[in-house]
Amino acid sequence: MNFFWRMGLLLAGMLAVVIGLSVITGISWLDLSWVMPDNVVSTFGPTLDNLWLVILWITGIIFVVTEITLLVFMVKYRHKEDRKADYIHGSNKAEVVWTSITFVIVMALAFYTKGIWDEIRDPNLIPADAYPIHMMAKQFEWNATYAGADGQFGTADDFLSLNVLHIPVDRPVVVQLEAEDVIHSFFLPEFRVKQDAVPGMSTLVWFEATRTGEFTLACAELCGLGHYTMGGTVIVHSQADFQDWLAQQQAAAEDD
């Protein structure tokens, strides 16, 4: 059997193992996603997904080209009795070429990234009309506080929503994150939002929902025994529904 037959058999064997185990566990490789899941509901979400795609393309091309080159070299320059390797110590030209190409690519990426990062995170660019909510994270629950009718926090008409974050659609929301005990991480996968809530600190995070519905709120930072249970829901209302909900909660809060 020559080299290629042996390698072919080996690869076929490996493929068989992968397929076999896939069948046993019931996964389909075709369903696995390499791009961000198609569930985004925030305004900056698509920008971020695009950035993902850009990086995926760049790294994907580099990945395929380098791995294939590596494979080709392995096959082409495999040991043969009558041949001696070439006596080459390197090439300054090649070094300069791949150093500068890599440098240019990564720097371009960094500067492309900067605009997006600022758009999402620059504290000066938080929309001024954003609807404010206070979120206090503690083991193992999310307490969202709404300002009530007077629009002021810390007054009697504030009300609390446990593990459910109600927000209006098409209006920026700014959440002031705090933690009571340990660090938690405020993770809204569909909104592409993640921000740690650190005790002793208060962090602002903003986002704007683009459609109504129920979405996930998760804790992404190990916060103790019940970390895995620290989930919640985000309910995006239409603006009118949101006002109704506010009024309703308002009334309930005043009855207490």
Partner: peptide
Amino acid sequence: LSGIFMASAPVDIYIHD
């Protein structure tokens, strides 16, 4: 190469942790 994804801070928002 997968490090480049998380080096890019906005993408890291989603994939961090």
